[in-house]
Design a protein around this nucleic acid. Sequence first.
RNA 1: GCCGGUGUGGCUCAGUGGCAGAGCAGCGCACUCGUAAUGCGCAGGUCAACGGUUCAAAUCCGUUCACCGGCUCCA
Length: 633
Amino acid sequence: MLIFEHEDKKLNYEQDSVKISDVLKDLKLDGKKVIAANLDGEEFDLSREVSHGGVINAITTDSPEGLEILRHSTAHLMAQAVERLYPGTHFGVGPAIKDGFYYDIDVAGSITEQDLPKIEAEMRKIVGQAEKITREDLPKSEALEFFKTKNDPYKVELISEIDAPTVSLYKQGEYADLCRGPHVPDTSKLHNFKLLSVAGAYWRGSEKNKMLTRIYGTAFATPDELKTYLKRMEEAKLRDHRKLGKDLDLFSLHEEGPGFPFFHPKGVAIMNTLIEFWRREHMKRGYVEIKTPQILDRELWLRSGHWDHYRDNMYLTEIDEKPFAIKPMNCPGSILVYKTQLRSYRDLPMRLAELGIVHRHERSGVLHGLMRVRCFTQDDAHTYIEHSQIRDEVMRIMELDKYVYTQVFGFKYYVELSTRPEDSMGTDEQWQTAEAALREALESTNTPYTVNPGDGAFYGPKIDFHLEDCIGRTWQCGTIQLDFQMPARFDVTYIGEDGAEHTPVLLHRVVFGSIERFLGILIEHYAGAFPYWLAPVQVKIIPVSDKQLDYVNELRDKLMADNLRVEIDTRNEKLGRKIRDAQIQKVPYMLVIGDNEKDNNLVAVRERSKGDLGSMSYEDFLKLLAQEFNPIK
RNA sequence: GCCGGUGUGGCUCAGUGGCAGAGCAGCGCACUCGUAAUGCGCAGGUCAACGGUUCAAAUCCGUUCACCGGCUCCA
């Protein structure tokens, strides 16, 4: 006897086993959108026979679970098409992912993006054939035999590692795949998919293994959702900071300096404004600022542990035949500053901030506009504290991060706790204490976080703050790292209340992370339309003709004297043209100056999104600007 | 670093073995203009670099570099 429950409904069957689709039908849970079911937390195909009852729910394509199944089935569909078109292809793994799916394959020759339409066409053919997707449970040994015969070494490897007596196979037509399932009942359920790109991916994610070909695609429940997604990707492309950086004349990249961006006047204007804001917030919060050298004796890096744990990322040089290194981090320099005096417990927490330029050797393939570079400015600070101050200091920093990310910039962000990596220094006990301290700070502030095991710095665990960009990618910005190692290695001390010497705890932290990366994220976040306080050009003055040049120059001088970033468009162009160009440059305010304004001592204000605001006096315009959000006012 | 792709004027791109092109931007001239592109003209390229094949290479082959999409790695 089997008993199924759904909400307040109950259903009994006399027989020993029953088909999921029958149960759903009897519960009136069937429908066009239903592709699988959830029974006591486990997902089942509609065609599965079950011999136990429980709480049952239908899985529809408009739920996250349903979408995942849909995408997973589409991955299989793609694999089947690939196998038809490229016989002899070996298959790796093909899961559903955040915005779609992929399949890793080992194909003789190569597949390029030009081949995708062909594969897609074959997929549609299989959809038309409405191939039934069937599940088969079989002993591991049989499955192994099956894939050995099929000459699919990757599947053989996967099965050998499965720790269960039986495995499941999913078949559709001539295609069979090792898979946990569930899947849609047949291939005709798959319509709204698109293959997107081809890339390389190491087998099982290890660079020691062979590189396979990965085909990315996406699938949605409805054509509209697919269209919306593709449109969003198009729009994201338009926001790409590399394109906007060029169009808005913010920065450039050159072959002569791979990974070393060149910043133009407008890019620097934004960065300087960010830095001004940063200084203001930090001075308010009890930080003091230092500056330490770019190049330091190798001895220092040996002592800090960087030589042992970070050498591959360091640029080396020589001065007077002595080895030196270009700094990849600011901590050792900060420590030397701390140690210039005998410190008292009364000096703690001592918050030494530094806008430190660091160089790190990044492998050529990872460079990406401003997001991933080889030289960047960290908005760093090293805080020296007593053990008892860890929690409070971490919470103070988290508060600052929250203010900056959400209040000032309006970002969504995610918090991650990264624990001890393989290549690290210190004792297990030190790491446990440090990790526990960070956890405590997260928990006592009710901050939701995920744990990223083994991703800490080599000297301590860390809390990372990831900001989400316009296409849902996340970038690590802020970090708070707890360090018991450096202070000990450098004999950093303070005199306690008890008159004895103690070793302080060192907190490394950044808010923006890298000024360069943060600028990149902001460009995409705002799509180049920077808010008034950050805009590289805040006001563009546009004379209607060159008869107003004198008045316009006078206006510019006044605005500049009021510390505004202002430009005049003196080109011999029509008004419409000058406005268009200022709009394209996303300047927040335009002042249109014709005879009317000149004769009556007025300015005609145009705001980039609201349009013409009419004429007003200069003073009224300043009042208007004063109402704009401005955290450094 | 690895896999795949791409590299033509400041920008966006056409040109697939036979004289290097277009639009925009720039410069000059005319128009002196009222809220998203005025017209006419001029100038601008070692076709990423190096090597090879060929009577002839932007085009075919090789090497290197950079960039793009990913993987691995990271702020």
